[in-house]
Each structure stands twice: as structure tokens, then as C-alpha cells.
Computed example of a mutant assay.
Amino acid sequence: MIQVRYSASPAGVETARTAELRENFLVENLFHAGAVHGVYTHDDRMVVGGAVPGTEQLPLPAWTEVLGGTSHLERRELGVINVGEPGHVLVDGEKFELGHLDGLYVGRGREVAFAGSGAAFYFVSAAAGATHPTIKLDHGEVDPVPVGSARGASARHLFRYAWGSDLQTSVLQFGVTVVADGSVWNTMPPHLHDRRTEVYLYVDLAADDRVFHVLGRPGATRHLVVADRQAVISPPWSVHSGAGTGSYAFVWAMAGENNDYTDLFPVTLEDL
């Protein structure tokens, strides 16, 4: 099944009830055993989804009623990251084995299926104007970029899978950030991507831990309380930053007009 989310006004965030914020920006139930679930957001026409194959092999749904094509990737490109135990993804029949936090980029026009009894695949697709090769992205082979500091409780490692440099895509960027033990902040100081929507999927949280995710325009922020394997849709006008009660990681994915990873606008703490 797929759910449709419409674009929201930044002004509405300032006065929205908590339930309205969660309904508009939080994606809570992507991962269901033996099923593929997705959310289509009108912000940059992104699709985020979860596939939990179990004992079955699950095809990537076309969701024609929303996406309009006869297959999901007829006019789209795809990023996949396994947030569960090892499994594999079939792309036009070719098998790609993915361990925990391994990624896969799939170009436009391919047929995709998911398999693996303990695997849980998170995927993001975006409209693509060009076709690029399928590339496996091993988490252990991606050079992490250290960011933040222990003193600021923000030490973390940024694993850039597709980010506008080594791996060519049409508009899609994605990767994983792993927050260091003892740190809590995932993006500090915060920033804006004024021409790109970003989606955060929080993973590897303990059952009783949460991330407090900050959203909204600078000077008028609110927050969401987010559990393991839940995602937040962050429109271009919203800051994105958060702090966790325990160790965690997050998958970030972006789509929009500009696919230069460094195309961002810093927000000072004074502006918040």
C-alpha cells in the first residue's frame, strides 16, 4: 500500500497540534513483515518505503494509481539501504547482497525485487531525467567523514553513498550518518536545503529510546518524538536537527533542483 502526503505551509507548523505535525511529517509504519509499504510526498515528488520480505520475494510495487507508470522505475531512480539483517535485492534478475546499512543505487527503467528472511529494506525514489548504472554501496568500504565534536555532544560519521560526486545520479542523494557513543546531536548547528526536500529515517535505536527531531522555519521551530525505523519528511523551508536519548544512526535522502551536497544554508543558534 502507499499513502499520499501533501505539501504543508511553514506557517501552519507554528500553530499545529502535535497530532497534526505527526500526521503531516512523521512516517511511522513503513516496515511490515511480508509487505512493501510506501509514502508519496508532493515535496519534490519523493517516495519513501519499506520492504520486509520474510520468506517471500517482494517486487517493488508500480503504485500506478499514484506514480502513473507501468513500473515503479519507469521514470524514477532508486536508493536502497538495508536496515535489518543480510538479504539481497534483485535488479533485472541480478542479485546484490546487502548487509546491515549497505546501500544500492538503481537507475531508471529497472525491475526490482527484495528477498531475505531477516532483511528490512528502506528505499527512496525520485523522478529521474537520465539513466545511470546500478551500483552497490558497501557500508564498510565508504570512507566516513568525521563531523561535529565530543565536546559539543555532536560527534558523528557521515557515510556519503550518492552525493553528487563519485556516483552520478539524476537528482537523488542518500547516505547514512552514525552518531558516536556519548553524543546525541545529529545535525548541529542546523542548516537548510532551500531547493531540496530531505527525509530522515532513524535506525538502530533501542526500543525505549527516542530522537527529538526539530522542524520548522528558524525562529519558529517545533519538534517530533521519533522511534526506531520511523522517518521524518523535511521540506526545503524546514531546519533539520535532533537529539537522541541513546545511540542511533539515520539514513538521509534528498531530491530536488540541485544535487550538490554542499548546497546548503547554515542556521546559527541565534537564528533559532
Rank of each mutant, 00 (worst) to 15 (best):
E111R: 14
E77K: 06
A113R: 10
H72N: 10
F123A: 03
E111K: 13
V89D: 07
S71C: 05
G84E: 08
L78C: 13
R75S: 14
G69D: 13
G84P: 03
L90P: 00
A128I: 09
G109P: 04
V124D: 00
S117I: 12
I135R: 14
A127G: 08
L104A: 06
D92N: 15
S125D: 11
A127L: 14
V112L: 02
L137I: 14
G68P: 01
V112W: 09
P86N: 05
V106M: 08
A126E: 04
E74L: 06
A128D: 05
E77C: 12
V80W: 06
T64R: 11
L98A: 08
G93I: 10
A113D: 00
Y122C: 08
F114T: 07
E85D: 13
R110S: 15
P133T: 01
D102R: 06
V83M: 06
I81E: 00
P86D: 02
G103A: 09
R110W: 09
I81C: 10
T134H: 07
A120G: 12
G93M: 05
L137E: 02
H72G: 01
D92K: 06
L98C: 08
V124L: 07
L67C: 04
K136L: 12
G87T: 04
D138R: 13
T134K: 01
E74Y: 01
E94S: 13
L137H: 04
D102G: 03
A120E: 15
G69I: 00
A120C: 12
I135P: 01
G79K: 02
A113C: 01
S125H: 07
A126Q: 10
R76E: 04
G69K: 02
L137T: 07
H100W: 09
E77N: 05
H139T: 00
N82K: 09
G87I: 00
R75L: 07
L101T: 11
K136R: 15
A115W: 02
E94P: 00
D92P: 09
F123D: 01
G79F: 06
G109S: 06
S117T: 15
G79E: 05
F121E: 05
V80F: 06
V112R: 03
V106C: 11
L90W: 07
P86A: 01
A126I: 00
V91C: 11
K95A: 15
V66D: 03
V124H: 09
S117A: 14
G99H: 12
K136N: 12
K95S: 14
E74A: 13
A128H: 06
A127P: 04
Y122E: 01
F96E: 07
E77I: 08
E85Q: 14
G118S: 06
A115F: 00
G79D: 02
A128F: 08
R110I: 03
A120L: 10
A120R: 15
E65C: 00
V89R: 07
F123P: 04
